[in-house]
Amino acid sequence: MLERATSDTMPAWGRLLAHVVVWALGLAFLVPFLVVVLNSLRTAQEIAQGSMIGWPENWAFLNYSEAWSEFCVAQTCTGLQPFMWNSAAVTIPATIVSTLLGAVAGYAISLWRFRGDTWIFGLVTLGIFLPQQVRLIPWTFVLRDIGLINTLTGLVVIHTIQGMSFTTLFCRNYYVSIPQDLMKAARIDGAGFFRTFFRIVLPLSPPILIVTVIWQFTHIWNEFLYGVTFTNGSQQPVTAALIGLNAAIADVPQYGVQSAAVVLAALPTLLVYLFGGKYFLRGLTAGAVK
């Protein structure tokens, strides 16, 4: 990081150009979210009578309080708030458990080699290519048989098991770059599977664990299909409530309040990215994904 010899070879005008290009791109990347934020401050009528994209005429800050605690989905007029907790109740445990299991599995596959490890790793990794629409009906049968249909626990189970495809992939690829010498030393000291994991591997892991947590958190938080199929009314995740706000056919969609709800629902993932982002890069720099 200290020796950035490549950039030193850049002439001054080159660096200026780089600044212009990268900041222009940055602004362009912001536009879609900016449109949502601006709409969240416009009234429904203003949007219905004008255009979808525009500057607020009257700043409708009340959209936010309405989105948070007032609007109604069917008879329950609680706003987004309880649904945010539902999402958290699924996302947080599923993220933590799937990350830990993925870390142990990745460690076992990469450093503790065992018979059939390549095969099982290949199979688990192939799972990332299996679209979740295809898994919907099989999961219904599984949830019925284990008695977890219409429970948040059922969703946690699904996201944990499915999530292991990604978490195992990420962690295994990271642990592969841990020198075998370290492992040998540990083994000579007589350290077992768990001792080695906790003493040597885990302290080296924060970067990749953060990457994995960010990935899992955003995917589970933003998931809709399972969330709406495997829950009932008041247990629904926040994505379902968001779409519930989008009165589909017979009404003017409430774009103002809807946009405010979108911003609120996106806050947790945005914050995770903002705070985690720093570590995300640090994690990757340490050779995370190879």
Binding site: C72, A74, G244, L245, A247, A248, A250, D251, Q254
Partner: peptide, 12 residues
């Protein structure tokens, strides 16, 4: 599906 708007109001 009737969660919002006049559909939601009618079913309520």
């Amino acid at each position: 599906q009737w969660s919002a708007g006049s559909d939601g109001a009618a079913i309520t």
